[in-house]
Amino acid sequence: MSGQRPRTVSKAVAVGKHVTGPAGGLTILERLDLEIQAGEAVAILGASGSGKSTLLGLLAGLDSATSGEVWLCGERVDDLDEDGRAALRSGRVGFVFQNFQLLPTLTARENVLLPLELTGTRDAARRADEALDRVGLTPRARHYPRQLSGGEQQRVAIARAYAPRPEVLFADEPTGNLDQVTGEHIIDLLLDLRSDAGAALVLVTHDARLAERCDRRLHMSAGHLEQGA
């Protein structure tokens, strides 16, 4: 780091999110500011309904904010349409979901191959194999998600997220569907891979113990963000 200013991979400036429904308006996020630097691991903690998944969606460019600015990988997300945001995410942003979200009709290896093929990566097959090997699932490459345990499915999802070597990885409750021991392994893997790839990790979780292992902890409460210890 030696005096060099770290690069910002994701930034929210005075971001607000309001929804209107039949029962009236609801504010989910209010004037929220946040910056994530390259290579940094940030945990967002909070109770159910505090707005942490909404924030994750906004930072990752999956949703658009009602007010404020959202920047991702140096580009302003609010100026882009959905396809523009998809192009921005392509290959530069990785995801790990609570319920794994593997395509049930593809094998483990094919699931990892998918984002590489979508971005037209040249040596997709080799990189997919490497990623699977890195998460220790080479022997299970030809298995379908339903033939894998929850922990194995999440390892495939991590391989899929890291294979395109993204700049930032968003993980939504990655251990939420797993037992404690398996959850620990998954966090180890996420953090190790983050170090290897130099990518930032933004982690939404309930689990304070997992959050402890991140560089920074943010607490969401009723649409506001508090810096943790």
Binding site: A60, E82, D83, A86, A87, R89, S90, G91, Q101, L118
Partner: peptide, 16 residues
């Protein structure tokens, strides 16, 4: 539907 949502997350453009 789910597969499309995931693929869009992974950066697949709509037209593709």
């Amino acid at each position: 539907t789910d597969a499309v949502a995931v693929m869009r997350c992974l950066g697949a453009p709509n037209h593709l």
